[in-house]
Write a protein that binds this DNA or RNA. Structure first.
Length: 281
DNA sequence: AATGAGCGA
């Protein structure tokens, strides 16, 4: 009794009763895996040795490039002139929250950026303006209002007695211009009220999409619930910056309904997706 | 908060 009374370290006493166990051993294997050997005493009082072989996955922390860029800014406003980093008197730093990052989240954007650039260059190399020979479409030419395509004579300037089709000008080609009302399926009258006649009955509108997400990311996520026929990620035409919403179409409306239920509230990147059926069928 | 294109070469 008195022997115990003076003691404060009860945990140590507990240890004294235990059989001494060998320390955990970790061995690194050539193939990148690790073997971990641990020892424990089971409920039955027997000594157990556990051998586990694990593969470590490196999770690269993803920082939004725009956020990273802001971090390099010089301080301004009331914090102007202060040293870099958070000031403890004005800023409290929250713990780093890892928010359910998805498996296929793009860890690096650099390499794919170059890929895309090359694709664009290839595409652009093929097009040649018929007016100024620039690398844009004729309709995009800055001179399209003031100049006619090379080798053509503007109709207004064409004399009435000009030989028809001699220069292969506008309106003389067999497969030339097709008026809007004759385009598309058979050219019947406008039945659909909307501008676009796509079928949106199995289309979901996805909002609160991280601006770092790409169409392929969405396709990957939504494909597990059915056959995705189309993914449209809204972007600004000039800047290419994602607008934060997208449309995902399924071949089957039932799949769309299931996906809608499953994916609404799904954590993607650092945001929670909102998914509902698209309006304007 | 937010409902999408470009047609060609």
């Amino acid at each position: 009794m008195s022997r115990v009374a003076g003691r404060t370290d009860w945990a140590e006493e507990e240890d004294d009763n235990d059989v001494q166990l060998p320390a955990q051993q970790i061995t690194k294997n050539k193939d990148g895996t690790e073997t971990i050997i641990t020892y424990r005493i089971g409920d039955d009082g027997k000594k157990y040795k556990t051998t586990r072989r694990i593969k470590k996955t490196v999770i690269k922390q993803v920082v939004n490039p725009r956020v990273a860029e802001r971090k390099a800014w010089a301080k301004f406003g009331q914090e102007k002139g202060k040293a870099a980093g958070p000031q403890t008197d004005t800023v409290s730093v929250a713990e780093n929250i890892h928010f359910r990052p998805v498996a296929n989240w793009k860890a690096s954007t650099e390499d794919k950026g170059e890929d895309e650039k090359k694709q664009m260059e290839l595409k652009n190399a093929k097009i040649k303006c018929r007016i100024c020979s620039g690398d844009h479409f004729t309709t995009k030419c800055p001179f399209k209002d003031t100049m006619a395509p090379e080798g053509d004579v503007a109709p207004a300037d064409m004399p009435d007695d000009a030989p028809g089709g001699a220069q292969g000008g506008l309106g003389t080609g067999a497969g030339g211009y097709v008026p809007p009302h004759l385009r598309g399926r058979g050219g019947a009258g406008e039945k659909m009220g909307g501008k676009f006649d796509r079928d949106d009955s199995a289309t979901l509108r996805v909002t609160n999409v991280s601006e770092m997400a790409e169409e392929q990311d969405l396709r990957d996520m939504f494909s597990r619930h059915g056959h995705v026929t189309r993914v449209f990620l809204a972007k600004d035409r000039e800047t290419g910056r994602a607008k934060g919403f997208a449309f995902v179409s399924y071949a089957d409306r039932d799949d769309a309904a299931k996906a809608c239920e499953k994916m609404d509230g799904f954590g993607f990147g650092h945001l929670i997706l909102r998914v509902e059926f698209a309006k304007k069928a």
